[in-house]
């Protein structure tokens, strides 16, 4: 995945707290292969009415070109479904700015090049006020961890490990391969110190052990 250092795009305010992963993508869409694109599922039940028509008053229907979201506290809380991140990324979202995020969501985001930028409640209020009727062009700088909107510049918090990963576009599987020796040395020692942690029991075919314990 390509890394990135800064981004300028249209920011849209979603003035809601607790936009959880089940809102970001309802579970019923999650059997779809990724190749088909997940953007249309983003916030589906808030954005699309029961007849399947887009709700004209939803900010993302009015501004489908948005690439930054400014949302309320506890964005992405709930399930570990990475599909929530796929829906955002496939919709064209590059960054979400909020006072707090679900931990698993934020980790999934960084693995897909999506920034979850944490800001203080005070800065959240400032940025919300500065967005003219909920939209505006905003610049995010990963190197300085700053958000700029017109003449307002505010800092955001991001785990430094995640920041580097976003900038470098690291792929963890490739990184980990470099530590193959350390892993082998660890398991050799570990098997001796925690033999009970390794599974030695044969897996009986289903019909031979129906009772469990």
């Amino acid at each position: 995945m390509a890394g990135w250092r800064n981004h300028t795009g249209l920011a849209v305010a979603l003035p809601m707290e607790g936009i959880d992963t089940d809102q970001l993508i309802p579970a019923r869409f999650m059997s779809t292969p990724r190749a088909e694109g997940y953007g249309r599922f983003l916030l589906h039940d808030l954005r699309i009415d029961r007849e399947g028509k887009p709700r004209a008053d939803h900010p993302l229907n009015r501004h489908p070109e948005a690439s930054i979201l400014l949302a309320g506290r506890n964005f992405g809380g709930g399930s570990s479904r990475e599909a929530a991140v796929y829906a955002l990324v496939d919709f064209g979202i590059k960054a979400v700015i909020a006072p707090s995020f679900g931990d698993i969501f934020a980790g999934n985001a960084v693995n897909n090049g999506l920034l979850s930028a944490r800001i203080s409640d005070a800065d959240h209020a400032k940025l919300s006020n500065a967005l003219d009727s909920g939209v505006g062009t905003l610049t995010i700088d990963l190197e300085t961890c700053q958000i700029t909107l017109g003449d307002l510049t505010r800092p955001f918090a991001l785990d430094p490990v995640w920041r580097t990963k976003l900038i470098e576009g690291w792929d963890d599987i490739v990184l980990t391969a470099k530590h193959a020796h350390a892993i082998a040395a660890f398991t050799q020692k570990d098997r001796a110190t925690r033999p009970w942690a390794y599974l030695n029991t044969e897996f009986s075919p289903p019909n031979q052990n129906p009772t469990g314990a």
Binding site: S79, I104, N108, N112, I173
Partner: peptide, 30 residues
Amino acid sequence: DSHTSTHGAFGAFAFGIGATEVAHVLATQT
């Protein structure tokens, strides 16, 4: 699955992870 925290009841370190991490664990057990 985020409710992997259940297993912590036994004094285990247990938590939910996303699909990229699942792929990483499958590939490396780390």
